[in-house]
Protein backbone atom coordinates (compact mmCIF):
# COMPACT_ATOMS: atom_id res chain seq x y z
CA UNK A 1 0.00 0.00 0.00
CA UNK A 2 1.38 3.34 -0.92
CA UNK A 3 0.80 6.29 1.29
CA UNK A 4 -1.85 8.50 -0.09
CA UNK A 5 -0.84 12.08 0.53
CA UNK A 6 -2.96 13.72 3.15
CA UNK A 7 -5.54 15.96 1.47
CA UNK A 8 -4.26 19.46 1.66
CA UNK A 9 -6.51 21.81 3.50
CA UNK A 10 -7.49 24.73 1.33
CA UNK A 11 -9.16 27.45 3.33
CA UNK A 12 -12.41 28.79 2.01
CA UNK A 13 -11.23 32.31 2.68
CA UNK A 14 -7.82 33.66 3.44
CA UNK A 15 -7.27 34.76 7.04
CA UNK A 16 -7.43 38.49 7.23
CA UNK A 17 -5.52 40.54 9.77
CA UNK A 18 -7.58 42.85 11.95
CA UNK A 19 -6.05 45.90 10.30
CA UNK A 20 -7.72 45.05 7.00
CA UNK A 21 -11.10 45.09 8.74
CA UNK A 22 -10.35 48.52 10.18
CA UNK A 23 -9.36 49.94 6.81
CA UNK A 24 -12.12 48.18 4.92
CA UNK A 25 -14.65 49.96 2.78
CA UNK A 26 -17.46 49.18 5.21
CA UNK A 27 -15.49 50.77 8.06
CA UNK A 28 -15.03 53.90 5.97
CA UNK A 29 -18.76 53.99 5.30
CA UNK A 30 -19.62 53.51 8.97
CA UNK A 31 -17.29 56.39 9.84
CA UNK A 32 -18.95 58.60 7.21
CA UNK A 33 -22.42 57.60 8.45
CA UNK A 34 -21.55 58.32 12.08
CA UNK A 35 -20.04 61.66 11.14
CA UNK A 36 -23.11 62.69 9.15
CA UNK A 37 -25.37 61.48 11.97
CA UNK A 38 -23.45 63.52 14.53
CA UNK A 39 -23.40 66.65 12.37
CA UNK A 40 -27.12 66.30 11.74
CA UNK A 41 -27.97 65.95 15.43
CA UNK A 42 -26.00 69.09 16.24
CA UNK A 43 -27.34 71.02 13.27
CA UNK A 44 -31.03 70.42 13.87
CA UNK A 45 -32.90 69.85 17.15
CA UNK A 46 -35.59 67.91 15.30
CA UNK A 47 -33.24 65.27 13.94
CA UNK A 48 -33.05 62.91 16.92
CA UNK A 49 -36.80 62.44 17.28
CA UNK A 50 -37.74 58.79 16.60
CA UNK A 51 -40.53 59.83 14.23
CA UNK A 52 -38.12 62.08 12.30
CA UNK A 53 -35.72 59.18 11.98
CA UNK A 54 -38.60 57.00 10.85
CA UNK A 55 -39.56 59.55 8.18
CA UNK A 56 -35.95 59.55 7.11
CA UNK A 57 -36.20 55.93 6.01
CA UNK A 58 -38.97 56.69 3.49
CA UNK A 59 -36.37 58.69 1.56
CA UNK A 60 -34.35 55.75 0.48
CA UNK A 61 -36.00 52.37 1.18
CA UNK A 62 -37.63 52.11 -2.24
CA UNK A 63 -34.40 52.89 -4.08
CA UNK A 64 -32.40 50.76 -1.66
CA UNK A 65 -34.59 47.72 -2.34
CA UNK A 66 -33.62 47.95 -6.02
CA UNK A 67 -30.00 48.67 -5.08
CA UNK A 68 -29.76 45.25 -3.38
CA UNK A 69 -30.49 43.41 -6.62
CA UNK A 70 -28.58 45.96 -8.69
CA UNK A 71 -25.51 45.27 -6.54
CA UNK A 72 -25.55 41.61 -7.59
CA UNK A 73 -26.09 42.60 -11.20
CA UNK A 74 -23.19 45.07 -11.18
CA UNK A 75 -20.94 42.54 -9.41
CA UNK A 76 -21.66 40.15 -12.28
CA UNK A 77 -20.44 42.82 -14.69
CA UNK A 78 -23.80 43.99 -16.06
CA UNK A 79 -25.98 47.02 -15.33
CA UNK A 80 -29.67 47.89 -15.56
CA UNK A 81 -30.55 51.51 -16.32
CA UNK A 82 -34.22 50.72 -16.91
CA UNK A 83 -35.30 50.20 -13.27
CA UNK A 84 -37.02 53.58 -12.93
CA UNK A 85 -38.85 52.99 -16.21
CA UNK A 86 -39.94 49.57 -14.92
CA UNK A 87 -41.40 51.33 -11.87
CA UNK A 88 -43.34 53.66 -14.19
CA UNK A 89 -44.66 50.83 -16.35
CA UNK A 90 -45.61 48.62 -13.40
CA UNK A 91 -47.33 51.55 -11.72
CA UNK A 92 -49.25 52.33 -14.91
CA UNK A 93 -50.40 48.71 -15.19
CA UNK A 94 -51.58 48.80 -11.58
CA UNK A 95 -53.44 52.01 -12.36
CA UNK A 96 -55.17 50.32 -15.32
CA UNK A 97 -56.13 47.42 -13.07
CA UNK A 98 -57.67 49.84 -10.58
CA UNK A 99 -59.79 51.34 -13.36
CA UNK A 100 -60.92 47.80 -14.17
CA UNK A 101 -61.97 47.35 -10.56
CA UNK A 102 -59.12 45.18 -9.24
CA UNK A 103 -58.53 44.90 -5.50
CA UNK A 104 -55.32 45.15 -3.49
CA UNK A 105 -53.95 41.57 -3.81
CA UNK A 106 -54.41 41.67 -7.58
CA UNK A 107 -52.71 45.08 -7.75
CA UNK A 108 -49.68 43.87 -5.82
CA UNK A 109 -49.44 40.77 -8.01
CA UNK A 110 -49.64 42.87 -11.17
CA UNK A 111 -46.96 45.29 -9.98
CA UNK A 112 -44.56 42.51 -9.09
CA UNK A 113 -45.25 40.45 -12.21
CA UNK A 114 -44.82 43.41 -14.57
CA UNK A 115 -41.48 44.13 -12.90
CA UNK A 116 -40.43 40.51 -13.25
CA UNK A 117 -41.52 40.46 -16.90
CA UNK A 118 -39.56 43.62 -17.73
CA UNK A 119 -36.49 42.22 -16.01
CA UNK A 120 -36.83 38.98 -17.96
CA UNK A 121 -37.10 40.98 -21.20
CA UNK A 122 -33.82 42.79 -20.39
CA UNK A 123 -32.24 39.48 -19.42
CA UNK A 124 -33.28 37.78 -22.63
CA UNK A 125 -31.89 40.59 -24.79
CA UNK A 126 -28.58 40.60 -22.92
CA UNK A 127 -28.01 36.86 -22.49
CA UNK A 128 -29.69 35.38 -25.58
CA UNK A 129 -28.54 37.98 -28.09
CA UNK A 130 -25.26 38.80 -26.35
CA UNK A 131 -25.84 42.56 -26.31
CA UNK A 132 -24.12 45.05 -24.00
CA UNK A 133 -26.47 45.62 -21.06
CA UNK A 134 -25.80 49.35 -20.73
CA UNK A 135 -27.12 50.00 -24.23
CA UNK A 136 -29.97 47.47 -24.05
CA UNK A 137 -31.27 49.00 -20.85
CA UNK A 138 -30.96 52.55 -22.20
CA UNK A 139 -33.24 51.30 -24.96
CA UNK A 140 -35.69 49.48 -22.71
CA UNK A 141 -35.67 52.48 -20.39
CA UNK A 142 -37.16 54.57 -23.20
CA UNK A 143 -39.39 51.70 -24.26
CA UNK A 144 -40.91 50.92 -20.83
CA UNK A 145 -41.48 54.54 -19.87
CA UNK A 146 -42.60 55.24 -23.43
CA UNK A 147 -45.35 52.62 -23.08
CA UNK A 148 -46.42 54.28 -19.83
CA UNK A 149 -46.60 57.61 -21.70
CA UNK A 150 -48.59 56.05 -24.55
CA UNK A 151 -51.14 54.65 -22.08
CA UNK A 152 -51.37 57.65 -19.79
CA UNK A 153 -50.32 60.68 -21.84
CA UNK A 154 -50.73 63.69 -19.59
CA UNK A 155 -53.32 61.93 -17.43
CA UNK A 156 -52.93 60.33 -14.01
CA UNK A 157 -54.45 57.28 -12.37
CA UNK A 158 -55.95 57.76 -8.93
CA UNK A 159 -58.50 56.02 -6.77
CA UNK A 160 -56.37 53.24 -5.32
CA UNK A 161 -58.25 51.23 -2.66
CA UNK A 162 -57.56 52.35 0.90
CA UNK A 163 -56.21 48.92 1.88
CA UNK A 164 -53.52 49.43 -0.81
CA UNK A 165 -52.12 52.41 1.11
CA UNK A 166 -50.61 50.16 3.79
CA UNK A 167 -47.54 49.17 1.73
CA UNK A 168 -46.18 52.67 1.36
CA UNK A 169 -47.67 54.39 4.40
CA UNK A 170 -48.29 51.70 7.03
CA UNK A 171 -46.29 50.87 10.14
CA UNK A 172 -45.45 47.36 11.31
CA UNK A 173 -44.44 48.21 14.84
CA UNK A 174 -44.15 51.64 16.52
CA UNK A 175 -41.93 53.74 14.24
CA UNK A 176 -40.88 50.85 12.01
CA UNK A 177 -42.62 51.33 8.68
CA UNK A 178 -43.60 48.46 6.43
CA UNK A 179 -41.11 49.78 3.85
CA UNK A 180 -38.25 49.71 6.33
CA UNK A 181 -39.14 46.24 7.61
CA UNK A 182 -39.35 44.96 4.05
CA UNK A 183 -36.01 46.52 3.16
CA UNK A 184 -34.24 45.04 6.20
CA UNK A 185 -35.70 41.60 5.47
CA UNK A 186 -34.67 41.84 1.83
CA UNK A 187 -31.20 42.99 2.86
CA UNK A 188 -30.72 39.87 5.02
CA UNK A 189 -31.96 37.63 2.19
CA UNK A 190 -29.64 39.26 -0.35
CA UNK A 191 -26.73 39.17 2.08
CA UNK A 192 -27.27 35.45 2.53
CA UNK A 193 -27.67 34.91 -1.21
CA UNK A 194 -24.51 36.78 -2.16
CA UNK A 195 -22.17 35.89 0.68
CA UNK A 196 -23.32 32.48 1.89
CA UNK A 197 -24.47 30.50 -1.14
CA UNK A 198 -22.74 28.96 -4.14
CA UNK A 199 -24.97 31.15 -6.30
CA UNK A 200 -23.32 34.23 -4.76
CA UNK A 201 -19.88 32.75 -5.34
CA UNK A 202 -20.76 32.21 -8.98
CA UNK A 203 -21.88 35.83 -9.28
CA UNK A 204 -18.45 36.97 -8.07
CA UNK A 205 -16.74 34.47 -10.39
CA UNK A 206 -18.65 35.79 -13.40
CA UNK A 207 -17.78 39.37 -12.54
CA UNK A 208 -14.10 38.62 -12.16
CA UNK A 209 -13.72 36.55 -15.31
CA UNK A 210 -16.78 35.46 -17.26
CA UNK A 211 -14.79 33.27 -19.65
CA UNK A 212 -13.03 31.41 -16.85
CA UNK A 213 -16.35 31.05 -15.04
CA UNK A 214 -17.92 29.58 -18.15
CA UNK A 215 -15.11 27.05 -18.51
CA UNK A 216 -15.44 26.18 -14.81
CA UNK A 217 -18.98 25.03 -15.46
CA UNK A 218 -20.80 28.14 -14.29
CA UNK A 219 -23.88 28.78 -16.40
CA UNK A 220 -23.03 32.43 -17.01
CA UNK A 221 -26.01 33.19 -19.21
CA UNK A 222 -28.56 31.62 -16.89
CA UNK A 223 -27.20 33.35 -13.78
CA UNK A 224 -27.13 36.73 -15.50
CA UNK A 225 -30.69 36.12 -16.67
CA UNK A 226 -31.76 35.35 -13.08
CA UNK A 227 -30.04 38.54 -11.88
CA UNK A 228 -31.90 40.65 -14.44
CA UNK A 229 -35.16 39.01 -13.34
CA UNK A 230 -34.34 39.75 -9.68
CA UNK A 231 -33.61 43.40 -10.49
CA UNK A 232 -36.89 43.67 -12.38
CA UNK A 233 -38.69 41.97 -9.49
CA UNK A 234 -37.28 44.43 -6.96
CA UNK A 235 -38.25 47.33 -9.25
CA UNK A 236 -41.77 45.86 -9.34
CA UNK A 237 -41.88 45.70 -5.54
CA UNK A 238 -40.56 49.27 -5.34
CA UNK A 239 -43.29 50.28 -7.76
CA UNK A 240 -45.95 48.85 -5.44
CA UNK A 241 -44.44 50.81 -2.52
CA UNK A 242 -44.13 54.12 -4.37
CA UNK A 243 -47.59 53.89 -5.94
CA UNK A 244 -49.04 53.07 -2.56
CA UNK A 245 -47.16 55.93 -0.88
CA UNK A 246 -48.13 58.54 -3.49
CA UNK A 247 -51.62 57.16 -4.12
CA UNK A 248 -51.42 58.11 -7.80
CA UNK A 249 -49.61 57.21 -11.00
CA UNK A 250 -48.12 59.55 -13.57
CA UNK A 251 -45.88 58.37 -16.40
CA UNK A 252 -43.08 60.55 -15.02
CA UNK A 253 -43.09 58.69 -11.68
CA UNK A 254 -39.65 57.82 -10.25
CA UNK A 255 -37.84 59.85 -12.93
CA UNK A 256 -34.07 59.67 -12.53
CA UNK A 257 -34.16 56.95 -9.87
CA UNK A 258 -31.85 54.71 -11.89
CA UNK A 259 -28.88 57.01 -11.37
CA UNK A 260 -29.56 57.31 -7.63
CA UNK A 261 -29.78 53.53 -7.30
CA UNK A 262 -26.48 53.09 -9.12
CA UNK A 263 -24.89 55.84 -7.02
CA UNK A 264 -26.00 53.94 -3.92
CA UNK A 265 -24.47 50.69 -5.20
CA UNK A 266 -21.17 52.30 -6.19
CA UNK A 267 -20.99 54.27 -2.94
CA UNK A 268 -21.48 50.93 -1.18
CA UNK A 269 -18.14 49.76 -2.52
CA UNK A 270 -19.36 47.63 -5.41
CA UNK A 271 -16.85 47.83 -8.25
CA UNK A 272 -18.54 49.24 -11.35
CA UNK A 273 -16.20 46.98 -13.33
CA UNK A 274 -17.71 43.92 -11.61
CA UNK A 275 -16.31 41.20 -9.40
CA UNK A 276 -16.24 42.94 -6.01
CA UNK A 277 -18.66 44.33 -3.46
CA UNK A 278 -20.78 43.52 -0.44
CA UNK A 279 -24.39 43.86 0.63
CA UNK A 280 -23.35 45.39 3.97
CA UNK A 281 -21.69 48.22 2.06
CA UNK A 282 -24.78 48.83 -0.05
CA UNK A 283 -27.05 48.94 3.02
CA UNK A 284 -24.67 51.41 4.69
CA UNK A 285 -24.56 53.54 1.55
CA UNK A 286 -28.37 53.57 1.46
CA UNK A 287 -28.49 54.86 5.03
CA UNK A 288 -25.79 57.45 4.29
CA UNK A 289 -27.71 58.80 1.32
CA UNK A 290 -30.89 58.87 3.39
CA UNK A 291 -29.10 60.68 6.24
CA UNK A 292 -27.56 63.27 3.94
CA UNK A 293 -30.77 64.13 2.11
CA UNK A 294 -32.92 64.11 5.24
CA UNK A 295 -30.48 66.07 7.38
CA UNK A 296 -30.06 68.73 4.70
CA UNK A 297 -33.84 68.74 4.25
CA UNK A 298 -34.31 69.60 7.93
CA UNK A 299 -31.95 72.53 7.38
CA UNK A 300 -34.13 73.68 4.45
CA UNK A 301 -31.49 72.93 1.85
CA UNK A 302 -33.24 72.47 -1.51
CA UNK A 303 -33.16 69.01 -3.09
CA UNK A 304 -31.03 70.05 -6.01
CA UNK A 305 -28.28 71.33 -3.71
CA UNK A 306 -28.40 68.03 -1.82
CA UNK A 307 -27.62 66.32 -5.09
CA UNK A 308 -24.31 68.22 -5.13
CA UNK A 309 -23.44 66.62 -1.80
CA UNK A 310 -24.42 63.17 -3.07
CA UNK A 311 -22.31 63.67 -6.19
CA UNK A 312 -19.33 64.93 -4.20
CA UNK A 313 -19.73 62.11 -1.69
CA UNK A 314 -19.67 59.58 -4.52
CA UNK A 315 -16.50 60.93 -6.11
CA UNK A 316 -14.68 61.62 -2.83
CA UNK A 317 -15.45 58.23 -1.30
CA UNK A 318 -14.24 56.51 -4.48
CA UNK A 319 -11.19 58.75 -4.83
CA UNK A 320 -10.05 58.61 -1.18
CA UNK A 321 -8.83 54.98 -1.12
CA UNK A 322 -7.08 55.51 -4.47
CA UNK A 323 -5.26 58.61 -3.25
CA UNK A 324 -4.53 56.90 0.08
CA UNK A 325 -3.01 53.86 -1.66
CA UNK A 326 -0.94 56.09 -3.90
CA UNK A 327 0.42 58.12 -1.00
CA UNK A 328 1.37 54.95 0.88
CA UNK A 329 3.02 53.42 -2.15
CA UNK A 330 5.09 56.54 -2.71
CA UNK A 331 6.21 56.53 0.90
CA UNK A 332 7.42 52.94 0.70
CA UNK A 333 9.22 53.13 -2.63
Amino acid sequence: MTDTPAPRHIPDRLDKPLSSAIFSWEALLVAVAVAIFAVNSFASPYFLDPWSLSDLTFNFTEKALIALAMALLIISGEIDLSVAAIIALASTMMGMAVQAGADTPVLVAIGILVGLGCGAFNGLLVTRLGLPSIVVTIGTMSLFRGIAFIILGDQAYKGYPSSFAFFGQGYVWWVVSFELALFLTAAVIYWFLLHRTSFGRRVFAIGNNPVAAQFSGVRVGRIKFILFCLTGLMAGIASVLITSRLGSTRPSIAQGYELEVITMVVLGGVSILGGAGSIVGVVLAAFIMGLVTFGLGLLNVPGIVMSIFIGLLLIIVIALPIVWRRVRRERFT
Partner: peptide, 25 residues
Amino acid sequence: LVWRLNIPSIVVTLGTLTIYRGATF
Protein backbone atom coordinates in the same frame (compact mmCIF):
# COMPACT_ATOMS: atom_id res chain seq x y z
CA LEU B 1 -10.50 62.41 -12.40
CA VAL B 2 -10.46 59.66 -15.03
CA TRP B 3 -6.83 60.26 -15.97
CA ARG B 4 -5.11 60.94 -12.65
CA LEU B 5 -7.24 58.98 -10.20
CA ASN B 6 -8.19 56.17 -12.56
CA ILE B 7 -11.83 56.23 -11.48
CA PRO B 8 -14.11 54.59 -14.08
CA SER B 9 -15.64 57.30 -16.27
CA ILE B 10 -19.21 56.13 -15.61
CA VAL B 11 -18.71 56.77 -11.88
CA VAL B 12 -17.00 60.14 -12.34
CA THR B 13 -19.61 61.49 -14.73
CA LEU B 14 -22.47 60.06 -12.68
CA GLY B 15 -21.14 62.23 -9.85
CA THR B 16 -20.50 65.33 -11.93
CA LEU B 17 -23.91 64.89 -13.59
CA THR B 18 -25.56 65.79 -10.31
CA ILE B 19 -22.86 68.23 -9.21
CA TYR B 20 -22.97 70.40 -12.36
CA ARG B 21 -26.76 70.59 -12.32
CA GLY B 22 -26.71 71.40 -8.62
CA ALA B 23 -24.09 74.08 -9.29
CA THR B 24 -26.47 75.60 -11.85
CA PHE B 25 -29.02 75.99 -9.07
